[in-house]
Design a binder for these strands. Structure first.
Length: 776
RNA sequence: GGGCUCGUAGUCCAGCGGUUAAGACGUCGCUCUCACACAGCGAAGAUCGCCGGUUCGAAUCCGGCCGAGCCCA
């Protein structure tokens, strides 16, 4: 047992280290170390003295393979196919006939003490009080009335086996006149005891069921059998069908512990994220059953109780008693059971800080802030920690809980040992790196939902990090060196829009990351950084500024580009660092940076970069023009190495001005031979491929042929026409004009105008009658 | 049996009263262009599960139905 523990401990620690978790290793703790033993014992004694722990005979979930009681939470219910067996219980006085009983568990007939019917059931009311003979036995049993019986199930009559079914137990308790039931199963759920014929002793449940059916058939009391699907409870650990069994166990009284927790969550003292789990949480908390904390297993904290063999007194104290406090006897025997492991775990948030001592750690770090854990242990652990927190310390153990979903395989199945579809994180780390693994867990699928995980996600993470690596590698030779973090660039060349634009985009990204983290939405933060670094920085900004970086545009332009690139990359690495610590740390050292580690560098404040909506807006026509010209290239099948001439006719002078400054970039990125910017009243170039955008028109020379009617243009016109019809429809609606807010109406009117204009321009092109000055 | 949650392109998922419904993966073209083919460029692909209601206006709010998942008994 020791060895097994050590091996698994080592493996978990290795996974934690390899995964790059930032952990205070000096506070490493184990649930069975001396301090945990002390805290566990203290908790038990306090609850016992407060009357919140009791020992009692209750119906518990018994795992016959592990031979221990388990808690309700450890039982997994699922629908399984079974057989409903109809059996006649003959009248004890020998009158022909009898009463028909349906059961899925004929092997428990030996434990019957009664047959119960619903007191209002017309079919059976007159039979209440008569006596039947229990099949296969010499015993008799009365027919009783009890409202717990479901008259619609089976034949409407229920066999009552109080030691082996919770409902039957309840009925038994309500009918004290019934004989005391005898147990018919041993701790392995094999038939045993005085009520079972000796030749059946020792049979397990499936065998017993088969033999019972045979015997009932021989006896002529088996009426019929029909297939029946019902819910079966299995032990989470052994997968064995749980046997309800009446036994003496230790329990914690839950309702008094739950009350302050429900109040705290309702009042917002503890917040659950995402908050859609609140209903589930409350529903469970408000219907709590007492917690069975004793286990009949080898490994665990012993129950800190001794029983006096002389007088039966129970000793419960912080230290084992020498003698019985009641009768003075020295003949004390320890309780044979151990505690449910969760009984130690639920103390964890304060036990690790030294509780029950009033330590400095406890004072400083408790309550803690955030618990991140899997939703599957919401009840086992999280809710119980809250209860223990309030009960033992009067405070919440944490102020926020973030529930992650369960990772599934790529086919959407739960990962399980049985299916063999759960990869070892160490293998994934060896294969693709710890950061690829980390990134793929937050992107693209939300961390708080059950999502598929596999090759695709992992490779996606690896690809993104490769991209990041390459961008920094590209930037390396250009960025200035230095021993401080790049400052916010002071741009000298005001006309170079791309720098202003990327800084504005950076600011938006940083704001989104901050907002996402505050909202406990790590996936949103990762998405924002992914989109920014890959598409804005790598695909657009780097391409746009290559010319300036090279120095071909002169020294001031180069300086602006270098400073901006350095700033954007350095800050982005800081924002990305919590998600992918290893790669960002490494790359950070390739950029200008202060002494020390990225891990300890301060979190960048989003507002150091200027918000610049004008730059963002102005950049749109540039990027759009490049896209449209490339689109014509691709659609018209222009050779990759061809450099056709291009024209843009902007619809107003501001756009013209912006495009003028970006002319070089457009030429390069659209691979043009030359780009001419046409005045609004110029004629459209003849025979060129064209695209109509809100900001103006783009033309591309089609070498060696004339442009046919463009399919893309036709599609575009259809789309715009449909949109215009929709918008016009809205505007024609008197209700819309009367009731919608004026700004919405104005927006719709502006949209209709713009659409009409664009359609007109498309029509001109398609009829080949584009005329100068018509756009005014 | 009860409850909760979720149904949006082939897949995963964002949006949660007024945008040409965002993105990622996959698919289809073109390209090994001096950071990156683990890539670049371009494109196609969604009547937002179904029916009804509220509203000038619904993917978004309400009700019902169907389907899936989870939790509890």
């Amino acid at each position: 047992m020791e060895r097994w523990t050590k091996e698994h401990e080592a493996r978990i620690l290795e996974q934690t280290r390899a995964g790059g978790f930032t952990v205070d290793w000096s506070r490493y703790r184990y649930t069975l170390d001396a301090a945990s033993v002390r805290a566990t014992r203290e908790a038990f004694v306090r609850l016992y003295r407060a009357g919140l722990i009791y020992r009692g005979e209750r119906m518990v979930n018994w795992d016959p393979r592990l031979r221990t009681a388990i808690s309700d939470l450890e039982v997994l219910h699922s629908e399984e196919d079974a057989e409903l067996v109809y059996v006649r219980y003959p009248w004890a006085d020998g009158t022909p006939g009898g009463i028909e009983v349906a059961t899925v568990r004929p092997e428990t007939i030996f434990g019957d003490v009664a047959v119960a019917v619903h007191p209002d059931d017309e079919r059976y009311r007159s039979l209440i009080g008569r006596t039947v003979r229990v099949p296969m036995t010499d015993r008799t049993a009365p027919v009783i009335g009890d409202p717990l019986v479901d008259p619609t199930f089976g034949a409407g009559a229920l066999k009552v086996t109080p030691r082996h079914d919770p409902v039957d137990r309840e009925i038994g308790l309500r009918h004290p006149e019934l004989p005391t039931p005898v147990e018919i199963f041993d701790d392995r759920a094999r038939l045993t005891g005085a009520w079972v014929p000796s030749d059946l002793h020792g049979l397990d449940r499936p065998t017993a069921r088969a033999r019972t059916i045979e015997r009932l058939t021989q006896d002529g009391v088996l009426l019929r059998r029909e297939p029946h699907r019902h819910s079966v409870g299995r032990s989470e650990r052994s997968d064995e069908v749980v046997e309800p069994r009446l036994s003496t166990q230790w329990f914690v009284r839950m309702p008094p512990l739950a009350e302050p927790v429900v109040a705290a969550v309702r009042a917002g003292a503890i917040r659950i994220h995402p908050d859609r789990w609140n209903p589930t949480f409350f529903r469970w908390m408000e219907g709590l059953q007492d917690w069975c904390i004793s286990r009949q297993v080898l490994w665990g904290h012993p129950i800190p109780v001794e029983h006096c063999r002389t007088c039966g007194h129970v000793e419960v104290d912080l230290a084992p008693a020498e003698r019985c406090s009641q009768c003075g006897s020295r003949d004390l025997t320890p309780d044979p059971d151990v505690l449910d492991a969760w009984f130690t775990s639920w103390l964890w948030p304060f036990a690790i800080l030294g509780w029950p001592e009033a330590t400095a750690d406890l004072d400083r770090f408790y309550p803690t802030q955030l618990l991140v854990t899997g939703r599957d242990i919401m009840f086992f652990w999280v809710a119980r920690m809250m209860m223990a927190g309030y009960y033992f310390t009067g405070k919440p153990p944490f102020t926020d809980v973030y529930f992650t979903g369960t990772v599934r395989d790529e086919r959407g199945r739960k990962m399980s040992k049985h299916l063999g579809n759960s990869p070892d994180p160490l293998d994934l780390i060896r294969e693709r790196g710890a950061d690829a693994l980390r990134f793929s867990l937050v992107f693209p699928n939300p961390t708080d939902e059950d999502g598929p995980y596999g090759r695709t996600a992992l490779d996606g993470g690896r690809n993104f990090l490769t991209k990041l690596w390459n961008v920094v590698r590209f930037a390396g030779p250009y960025v200035p060196t230095g021993d401080r973090a790049p400052p916010v660039p002071e741009l000298t060349d005001a006309a170079a829009l791309e720098h202003r634009w990327i800084l504005a985009r950076y600011r938006r990204t940083a704001e989104e990351v901050d907002a996402a983290i505050s909202a406990f939405a790590p996936t949103r933060a990762a998405s924002a950084l992914h989109a920014f670094l890959w598409h804005d920085v790598a695909d657009r900004y780097v391409e746009l500024s290559k010319e300036a970086l090279s120095g071909r545009l002169g020294e001031p332009a180069q300086r602006d580009a270098r400073a901006t690139l350095a700033f954007v990359l350095e800050r982005s690495l800081r924002l990305l660092h919590p998600i992918v610590p290893h790669v960002t740390e490494e790359l950070w050292h390739a950029l200008p940076h202060p002494e020390g580690l990225l891990a300890t560098a301060p979190w960048p404040s989003a507002d150091e970069a200027p918000a610049d909506p004008e730059a963002e807006l102005a950049m749109e026509p540039v990027l759009e023009a490049i896209r449209l010209l490339r689109n014509v290239r691709a659609e018209e099948g222009i050779a990759a190495d061809a450099t056709p001439r291009g024209w843009i006719r902007p619809s107003n002078s501001e756009v013209l001005e912006v495009l003028e400054t970006a002319r070089g970039a457009i030429v390069r990125l659209a691979k043009l031979g030359a780009l001419e910017l046409l005045p609004a009243d110029a004629a459209a170039p003849a025979g060129a491929g064209s695209r109509i955008a809100p900001f103006g028109e783009c033309y591309l020379e089609l070498p060696g042929r004339s442009a046919g009617p463009s399919a893309a243009l036709v599609r575009e016109r259809e789309m715009l026409a449909a949109l215009l019809a929709k918008t016009d429809g809205r505007l024609a609606d008197a209700g819309f004009r009367a009731r919608a807010p004026p700004e919405v109406v104005a927006e719709a009117e502006a949209k209709a105008r713009e659409l009409r204009e664009r359609i007109r321009r498309i029509d001109e092109h398609m009829s080949g009658t584009a005329s100068p000055g018509a756009a005014a």
